[in-house]
Each structure stands twice: as C-alpha cells, then as structure tokens.
Design a protein around this nucleic acid. Structure first.
Lengths: 340, 340
DNA sequence: CTGAAAGCGCTTACAG
DNA sequence: CTGAAAGCGCTTACAG
C-alpha cells in the first residue's frame, strides 16, 4: 500500500458492491456518458464521500498520461517581483487544476538548461520561463520539439514562442515624456549590460522619445554589470552628476533603482532638486523615501495571468501562439517633479 | 504513451538485449546488490545514456510508494520573508532529491485545512507549515495521524511537533535592552492581535526586560488587526506619541514596521530625535530611510534549512522530533540611537 | 447499464 | 548472475 490507511477505488467498489471501473466512471463525472443508473451513481458518490476517498493522483496521472503539472522557471523566487508572479500563477493554476513547480536559475544558462530537463523528467506538461542571456537557442529548441512554453517578462523576437511581457518600449516612452514635460533636458538612463530585448526595448523607448523631442545630443545610457551592480552604478552616477551635469535619471530595473538610491544618498545628491529620479516596479522603499519615488508600474497580475492562461491553452491546443505586451503605468510621485 | 518520444525502461532493455528488471537494478545502483556482471552493467549504463533515457517518475513513485514530494504551506509566498524561505527550502530540497509544492493560506484557517488536504492528495510525504491562528488542533491531528510535519516561523507549545523558529523572546530582549542602554525609558511595542506564540514570546521578551530594568510602569503594548493594520497603527502611534509621550517603539513584524514608518512620516515625527524606532526583519526600505532603521535580523537561512532537514529526517525516521529556536541578531543603525 | 481485462512504466520478490 | 511475473491504483476500450 502506497499511502497507509488510504482508501482506494477498489475499497470503495467493494463497499458499494460494484466494480472499480464503475466507481471510476461515476467519480470522474462520466456517469451519464456511460449511462450508469442514477441510483447507483448516487450511492457510489455517497459512500466514496463517507469513506473519505481521495484518488491517488500518481496512479491517475500515470494511467491518463497527464500529470497536471506545470513548471515556473524564474531567475530568483526570492526577488519580490517574481514572488508576486509566482503567487498569481499558483492561484490561477490551482483554479485550472494544475500544480506548479518552481525553480530559480540565478540568471545562469547552465542552470536554466538543467532545470528545464529536470522539470521535464518530473513530467511537467508545459513551462513558464523567464529566459536568461544566451538562452535563445535553448528556447527555440523547446519550441521546435513542440513542447509547450510561454516566456515571461522577457521574450525573443523572431521565434514563434508565446510570451507575456510588459510593453517595455512604452514604459520608458512614458517615463521620458514625463521628464521632458517637467522641463528636464539632460536625461540619462541606467541599464544593465545584456542582449535581452526587454532591456533593449526600454533603451529604445527612451532614445526614440529623446530624439523625437530633439534632445539626441543628451542621450546617455550607462550599462552596468547586473551581477555586481553597486560599484558600476556608483561610478555611472558620479560621472553623470559631476561630469555631465544631468537633470534626471531613469533606472531600468527595480534593483538598479534601489542600488542607485543608495549611491545617490552616499553622494549627498538631493532628489528631486539636484536630480529627478524614476524607478521601475513598485517597492515599499520608494514610498518611504524622503522624496517619494516616481516609478513605472508593471501590470503584474495581468502578466502572470496571461502567462498561465496562454500556457494552458497551448497545452490543450497545439497551435496556440500569443505574444502579449502589456500596458505600463507611470506612478508620478515627488522624485520626478520639476525642482521648484 | 505518456510522454511522446520518451524512451522507457523497456526500450533500453530491448536495445541492450536484457530484461527491464535488470536495467532497473543497474540504473538504481543496485548492480552490486543483485550481483550483476560488470560488463553488462557498464553496457546498460552506456546505452541508457545514449538513448537519453530518463525514468518516468510517476511510475517509479507509484510503484515504490514514494513521491519524493514535500509541501511548503506559508501565509503568502509574495511576502519577501517567505519568498526567501521558499528559495532556500527549494534549493536544499533539490539537493536531497525532493520536489517542493508551495501554497499560500492568507492567514486563513479554512485555506490551511484545505491546502493540507490537497497536498496530501497530491502525495506529499511531509509538510512544512506556517500555521495560522486557530490551527493548533489541526496540526495536532496531523501529528497524531503520524504524518510528518515541521512548523516554520511559528510553533505551538505543548504538542510534540517539530518546529524551526526564531528565538522570539530573545529577539525583543535584545531590542529592549539596546533601547534602555541608549537611555530610553518609555518604550512601547506595536504587536498584532493574535494567540500565536511567536508574537506572545516577543511581547514577553519585552515585558520581562522592562520589568527587570524596573520600568514596569511604562510597559505599553498596542495590538492592531493584522489584516488591516494601517489605521490601527496610526491610532496607536498617535496615542503613544501625543498622549503618552513615549521615547521609543519596537515594531513586532516587518509589515507593522513598514506601515508604522508611513504613519510616522505622515505625523511628521522625526526619527530618532522625536522617537527611536526598531523594526523586524531586513527590508531595503529600512536602509534607504532618511534615518537608517535598526532592526532585528532573523537567521533566515538557518530557519529554512533546519526546517527542511528536520522534515526529511522525520520522513525517514518516524521518531524524530526537534524544536529549534534560532538566534536573532540586532542590527543597530541610526533610528535607535539616543537623540544627540 | 455493468463487469472483466489490459495496460500506463516501473520495481521487487521469486525462481532458476 | 538473469528473466518472468506480479502489482502499485487507476482508466479505457471491449464485451455482454
């Protein structure tokens, strides 16, 4: 016996005095389909309940070839952004009768490769993946082997894999436009060094807006190492503030913003008088900052729900493809307002 | 076929020209035990690798009666504290060859009850649970049915269930002592309204320290509603500051501290000059605050590792019981220093 | 309308 | 040393 004291289908069948097959049919809601008598069906349900019968999902899944398992591979589940995503994916998956397996890659390609394999061995029917730098071909391979995948937060243009992301171009367009409207001219950007399109699009939205406004001469994008961003950010900010005398800075991720604010505090830069600041994603630290930080808000729930819904559709229908780019919102607080 | 294109044990056996049983034994490292020839064993391993064989875990687990699955039930996985815990449990569980299922209860008893049942139906071999108010008997029942459980972050005295928690009494003892040493006398506490012992112990540590120091007359514990703490905290703080003229306040959870800092900002209270403050758990907002917030640091990694290690020991050995209370650390920053 | 049989992919006694 | 058989708990054709 695999689970001590657990009642099996057979036990119920014996108690009712019918075959296990009949019990299985009734309990799976196929009584009608197999034209099983109402009386007997009712009796089966009643006794199953009394006996506290719960199906052994392992057996059920083995037999049906379905595991009702999906995998969520993020860069780091302890990052609040992904923790929020996980919570929503979890809740929605449960509604849809799926169980979620979660793992973290730490932005590492080998980990990503390994985790995908591990998850597949565990029988996941599909994956939601936050891909890291260099994983384009890996994801493409998954797609080509016809395995259901949905990318989350980041995407690759040119391959037919579904994705659920922010409209990153629009995000920085909103932010940059707002700063220009506030009278800022020398606006700078702190990004990290990557080939990933979510960041490239954010940079493009900024550059495009600056050029359209006629400020191309001030375009200044500084890229730092994501795995060790603190020193890079401090250097970049010192250069921007002391040498280039910029008016405003947009941080392209939450972590860059947080580390950037540390650096600005250290440098004694006053926000927004010395420098206007815009951050990315909500963070309690933004609201508790002496100058409440303006930030780009991602529609986290929509991104997560879109991802899980798309994945499940894809699992059920081999031809489903959906790339969605969801609308950001600029939450204007004190840090970006024109110095008075 | 349950997984398209997947090679099964049988396929490997056929390719090698032996029985499935033999392949199973070799691949499970039981070649020696069953005295299988070195040659043949090597050949099996080689061909299995070439064919990219990966066992169907569903079948394996069904047959062996083990799922290698454990459940982690927290109050909210999107809470950074639990997200951090989850990350560590996840990593450690993988090392031990277990897969983790995660769910959130939102501090709700019915959810807890339901999730425990759902997880058991999914075949988890044990559970790590953050119990909510009112779940004492539920946990006791689990224990009595001999199901492996380890409580995390919170515990119940008087029942023989393993737990991995902070030494909460010591946490507030450290904090209160520090404030007294800084010359504060009218020290107050913001707690939430609960019967749970992690909070009661924190209160006790404070009261005990205050009494020993001879300040019983100033003992002032304010309890707020955890599910809607903002208004309660504001009221409490206004009362404390304006009526009782306290010198210092300790917030008993991270969330209380964050919401408390909002309120203090609104009230225009200056930290630490008007009021000394100590928070709970690390939070970036503490370090970015205009007055860096002193806080009680939990040994998150130890708590998480202890929980998973204890659970796995318990799964393997029916008589294993371990209640651990781990050492807090007071990280002293500006917010608690004596007004100069 | 209902039962007996086969089989999902694996492992573990049991023979030899 | 190795193979054939049974069985984990379930579901799905197949009979009747």
């Amino acid at each position: 016996m695999s689970r001590e004291g657990k009642v099996s289908l057979k036990d119920v069948a014996k108690a009712v005095g019918v075959s296990p097959a009949l019990v299985s049919m009734v309990l799976n809601g196929k009584a009608k389909q197999y034209r099983i008598g109402d009386e007997i069906a009712k009796k089966v349900r009643k006794i199953a309940k009394e006996m506290n019968y719960a199906p052994n999902l392992l057996a059920k899944n083995l037999r049906s070839g379905k595991t009702q398992l999906i995998g969520l591979i993020v860069t780091d589940i302890s990052n609040p952004f992904y923790a929020n995503i996980a919570r929503i994916v979890e809740d929605r998956a449960n509604e849809l009768n799926y169980t979620v397996l979660i793992s973290s890659t730490d932005e590492n390609f080998e980990n990503t490769e390994r985790l995908i394999e591990v998850m597949q061995n565990k029988g996941v029917e599909g994956l939601i993946v936050v891909p890291c730098d260099g994983s384009r071909e890996l994801i493409k391979g998954l797609y080509e082997s016809n395995f259901p995948v949905v990318l989350l937060d980041r995407y690759f243009p040119g391959i037919d894999v579904s994705s659920s992301c922010l409209d990153n171009f629009r995000a920085t367009t909103l932010a940059t436009t707002h700063l220009i409207e506030q009278g800022h001219r020398k606006i700078s950007l702190i990004a990290y060094d990557t080939e990933m399109y979510h960041i490239l699009d954010r940079i493009a939205g900024y550059e495009d807006t600056m050029k359209k406004a006629g400020f191309e001469v001030y375009i200044d994008v500084q890229k730092v190492n994501i795995l060790n961003s603190k020193p890079g950010i401090l250097d970049a900010l010192q250069n921007m503030v002391h040498e280039k005398h910029i008016d405003a800075v947009i941080f392209l991720t939450n972590m860059l913003a947080i580390n950037g604010l540390y650096s600005l505090n250290e440098m004694g830069v006053k926000i927004p008088n010395d420098l206007a600041v815009i951050g990315f994603n909500r963070n309690v630290a933004f609201d508790l900052h002496y100058s409440k930080i303006t930030f780009i808000k991602q529609p986290i729930e929509k991104i997560a729900e879109q991802a899980i819904n798309t994945l499940v559709s894809r699992i059920k229908n081999r031809n489903h493809l959906l790339k969605s780019f969801l609308e950001p919102e600029l939450i204007v607080q004190e840090s970006s307002l024109r110095a008075s």
